[in-house]
Each structure stands twice: as structure tokens, then as C-alpha cells.
Write a protein that binds this DNA or RNA. Structure first.
Lengths: 190, 190, 190, 190
DNA sequence: GATGAATGAGTATTCATTCAT
DNA sequence: CATGAATGAATACTCATTCAT
């Protein structure tokens, strides 16, 4: 017997808004409390019922990936820029997102245990490869540098972020870490 | 009617044994079920009551670190070897432990959120520094290589291990990752 | 931007079809998942919205009874056959439906708690009585056998079905059970 | 962080009492609300934490069976009476318990879906067989009556109880139902 | 009238931590 | 000191029911 004091039912039209609200809330909560924050807190933060969250995202991983996917949209934009400097910017932005969304490190650690085989790596390859090709053609990067190298370097950055005290420390450490790998694209002209 | 005695109370003498049993059990359970395995399972696996576990380790992090510390004993032995090749072996062993004890990646991710100021880094420095000095003096490593570099590289390896599918994949990826950093000690003569 | 129409609104004409589709779906789902299967699954299986299900059947019991009622249609046909052998066939068919639709046992158990005063008993009486009268007149059954006996025997068969492992076991057990009650109509010439 | 206002921890010594309290509460709650009553209500009714309930009984079925098992103790006492009239009393008591503990009908219906193969039938056989043998030897029952018949009749009584409006109606109906099976032990001299 | 998303109370279950014995 | 049962808050997840469109 539902209590009469429930929130107004905004109807199916709210579905899109709700999904967006959940993603935004998840991003916020993950950042504050980590990837294992209770899902009901995310629902509450988003201002929706728990059922809505579960309708949109059947489990934590689905939600986590969805949030993460949003980053791809941004990266794709940079990647699609048909210019030789795109790689540098793309790489810089990727590192930045990795630092900002440190919670996702936990997610990946988790996903390893979960069966879910995420195609994030392939997605990333699709993003990096064309930009790398253009940069190489333009002679802007080490001709030996491969996409696999970039992927691996990204995972290495993950480790630095995961073990950093906070975002500021992570930023410094990531800069130092990438400097250890000579083959990497040059730091963007900040 | 006194409650039946489930196990003989072996008195204070058992404290040391208990501690060791708990550590061994924790290592086993962490490896099987991950760092977030229920503590009562570790107590049961160790054959001790939960109270004993709490007596020795006030929380999961304390236990986790204690298990991890055991690795230091082994590393210290290598480090204390007064020979120029110690660094290579030390480094190789460190990477190996990082791969094997993947659960600790979770621990470190966790520790970042917990306020816990772990002195692991300093401990590691204390281990690496003398070996690095000797190796440098003997001209066996890049003269530019610093202890900070090693520490950072170790964190990078963490990231690779954390995002690897399994131990075998981690081993391959770590090899590739360290190859990206030219300054690092050479791989040990396998 | 109006929300996309998921399915054409076929108007009131569809009401009858919908009702039938829901009943069929309910029968299927009850058989597969038991009487307490989620209602939304029935709606989905029927290809209708949940609102429609609620329009036709205000609650689970109403739906359950409606499905069950369909059996009466079949039984009524047999009962209306103006011949002395109708009782035997009617009784045999009743037992068979009881075995087949085991989910309804759960429903009846449930109904006992719900206040719902189901008139199923009277309906059954209306079906059995005329056939019993004809059979008695024709000397084909124990003259002592009453409709009340049949009703009671039917409930007893319920118990056997409810506690049987599966349909096959139920069939065997029901045969044995009815054999214990000498007054019952003879088994149909299979 | 446990609130400071928790109930006193009575220690392990309370285990026995707790188990008994849970069983009693379960019996009460099952009778009032049916076999599917929320387990936390049983815990609360028993005055224990939910964890305690789960420690003693890992799932609903385990709890249900445990409650049911208590009935066996009583029946066993009657059964072990080395006298020819034991069967009649045993049978009467069995029917009575079946009427009283109607919730167990639901449990059995449920258990059919659950994997759990309960050995209740064998237990019942072990109880009934010796008493039946003695009764038969003393010529107090139909020499044709078998234990299997009794078991089957018991299941039939289940059906009658399950479909009865309330306990009073069940009592009347069970009497009528058993009267339909001539071979059964005579009603006890009430 | 039909749709199906939204709602959120209800329930099961786990596990860190305490504490009587 | 050790034992391990007790505690109960925390959390995940489900599903009956409503209602905007």
C-alpha cells in the first residue's frame, strides 16, 4: 500500500531526464564516495526512485560503464578533428579524465572479477588509432609509437592515479610518470 | 550447565601462532576472494575466533597491510645482499609480488580513501635506495635513475596489473610496460 | 516532441482480444513460474501494457480465478451432454485439470487467506449435480454418492497434487488416491 | 557504526534460548500470516536480531522444516507407545497437527519448487509403520491397510485443510474426508 | 483506452563489530 | 585471553500499483 505522500509521477516523458539525472548523480557520488557507493544514494541524489535506477541500469557495472561512456563522446570529438595535433590533445584529455574520474579505476578492478568483458579497450583503440596515424604522418610523434603502447601507457597512468593521495598529487605524479616514457606524445602546450 | 568448550584456550603463548595463522589465512582468502572478503571467513580459515582477529588487527586495512608487510621481509633479504646485482633482483621480485598479490591493488585503492597514512613508500625507498646506489656505483643502471623513478614505475605497474584480465595477462603486460621505460633496471636473467 | 508511440492504440475493439491474450499469457506464465509470478511478466508475455492488465483484472486473484474459470467452459460442455456417462468423463476431466494446472493449488491456498469468497464450489456443484443425477438414475454410480462427496474428493486430490514431486508423480498418486475412495465414479475407459 | 542503543548482547549462552524463541515465534507468525510471512517479522517477534535467525536457519525452508520437525517429537512419543491402540492415536494426532499447522501446506507446495528433497515422508513412515504393524496384529485395522495408504490419505487431508475456510471448517471437512476412505483407522474415541 | 515508465515500500541478506562466557 | 554467538545497520533488489502521455 503506497503511502499517499509519494513524489509526483512525472510519467514516461521523464525517462530521458531521469536517465541523465542518474548519470550526473552517479558521476557526483562516485567521485565523492568511490565506485562502491550505495546505489540507493545515487537514486536519491538523482531524485528518482530506486526502481528507476534499476530500470535504466540493471547493475552497478552497467551504470558505471554508462557514466564512463560519456567521456567517450568528448574524446570522440577531439579524435575526429582532422588535424595532426589531435593526438596530443586527445592524449592529454584522456589523461585528464583518468585523473578526474579516479573512481573508474575501482570499476575496472571490479570488472576484472565480474564476467563482463568491456570493450573499452577496442573503443579506445578506435579513437586513438586514426589520430596516431595522422600524427605519425605529420612527423609529430615517435614513429615507433603504437596504439598498443598508448593503451598500455594509459593503464600505467591508471596505477599512478589509483595510488595517489588526491587529485593534485595524481596530477603531478602522472606528469612525472609520462615523462618516464620517452615515446609518448609531447605534453600539450598548456 | 557451562557452555561446552569449543576449543581449548591455549593461553597467551598462542598469540604469536594465532597472528601467523591469521596472516596466512588472510593471504589465502585475499587471493581467492579478493581484498574485500568477509573478515569472519579469514578468522574461520585461520581457525581462530573473530575476537582474536580483532585483537591483532583492528580493521581490514591493518590486516591487509600486515600481510603485505610480510613481502617486505623477503625483499629486505634481497636488498641487504651487498652486491651490485641486488637491485635487479629486488626490482624483479617486487614486480613479481605485485603481479601475484593483485588483491593488494584493491587494498591500495581502498587505502587512498581511508585516511590511513601508510608508510609503505618510505619502507620501499629504504629498501631500494641502497641497492640502487650500489648498482649505480657499479655502473649497472642508468645513472639518471632515481629511487623516485622506481617508486613511480612501481605504481605504474600496479595500474597494469589492476587492469589485466588475469595473472598470465598481467605478466605479459608488465613486461611490455617496463620495456616502455628505458631507464629501468634490466630484466633479470631469467 | 511527443513520446514515440510504442504500439498502435487499437481502440476499444481490442479489449476482448487483450483480455484473451492476458488469460493465455497468465496460463503460460503460471505454469512455468508458479502462481506468484510477477504480474508485469504476464503483461509483457501478453504483449499489453500493465495498465491494461489492471483494467481487466484488479488483482492477482481475479486474474487467477479468471484463468481457472476457463476450465469451467470445457467442463460445462461435458456436463451438458445429456447422457449417463457424462459424470465419469466430467470427473476424469476435472482430475486431469487439477493435475495439469497445479499452480492453482497455490492460488487456492492463497485465496483462503484473501477474504475472497469464491463461488467456485457452487459452480462446481452446478456442473456435477445434474451429471451425478443422471448417472445415479442410470445406476452407473454408487447410489450413496453425493455431490458433496465429489467436492470433498476433489479437494483431497488437490492435496495429493500439491504434495507431488511433479506432474507424472501427481498422476500416479491421484490414481492411487481415488482408488482409496470406493464410492467415486469409476475411472474412465482410457 | 552501531548505535549505542542496541539491545544487550546476552552472549553465546543465549544461543539455545534464541533458537527456541525463533521456533516459537515462527510457529506463531506462520499461523497468523502464513508460511511466506517476512522473516524479519519472525526475528522481531522472537526478540532477536535478523542475523541470529539467519545463523540458526539459513533460509525459510530450513526454518519451516525445523518448526515442523518439532511435531515429530510429539508424534514419536505416541508411536513409541508399545500398545495396539497407538496407531489410532497417532493418526488422530497427525490429522490434528495438519489442521492446526495449515501453514505447512504452503511450505510443502513451496518445497516442491525448491530443490530440497525433504525426508519427511520417510520419517513419517518410520513413525507409522511400527504402530500400523501392531494394530494389524491386534486386528484393530483393516488388514489391507498399508503405510503407503496412510501417507496418501495424509496428503489428501492436506488438500482438504488447504482449501478450507478456517480451522473449524477444516476440522469438519477432514472428518468427512476420512470417512470417505473406509480402510482408515477408526476415529479416536474423542 | 493503451502504454509503460515511475514510484517506493517491502523484504532478504550480509557482515563489521561487540561482548558474555 | 579466546571463543563465536549476538546484534542490527546497511544495502541490494523486486514488484504491485499508479498515472502522465
Amino acid at each position: 500500500m503506497p503511502s499517499p505522500r509519494r513524489q509526483i509521477n512525472r510519467g514516461p516523458a521523464a525517462a530521458g531526464e531521469n536517465r541523465a539525472a542518474i548519470l550526473a548523480a552517479a558521476r557526483r557520488v562516485f567521485a565523492e564516495q568511490g565506485y562502491h557507493a550505495p546505489l540507493y544514494k545515487i537514486a536519491k541524489e538523482a531524485g528518482v526512485g530506486q526502481g528507476v535506477l534499476y530500470r535504466h541500469f540493471p547493475n552497478r557495472l552497467a551504470l558505471g560503464f554508462a557514466v564512463f561512456e560519456e567521456n567517450f563522446v568528448e574524446l570522440r570529438e577531439v579524435s575526429s578533428r582532422d588535424d595532426a595535433g589531435a593526438l596530443e590533445e586527445l592524449w592529454a584529455r584522456l589523461l585528464d579524465l583518468t585523473i578526474t574520474d579516479a573512481a573508474f579505476v575501482e570499476m575496472f578492478v571490479d570488472a576484472r572479477r565480474a564476467t563482463a568483458d568491456y570493450d573499452g579497450a577496442e573503443r579506445l583503440v578506435a579513437l586513438l588509432e586514426p589520430a596516431l596515424d595522422r600524427a605519425r604522418a605529420a612527423g609529430r610523434v615517435d614513429p615507433e609509437l603504437t596504439t598498443a603502447d598508448l593503451l598500455l601507457a594509459h593503464r600505467m597512468v591508471f596505477g599512478v592515479v589509483a595510488t595517489a593521495e588526491d587529485e593534485a598529487a595524481a596530477r603531478v605524479a602522472v606528469a612525472a610518470a609520462t615523462a618516464l616514457i620517452p615515446r609518448l606524445p609531447p605534453a600539450p602546450r598548456a
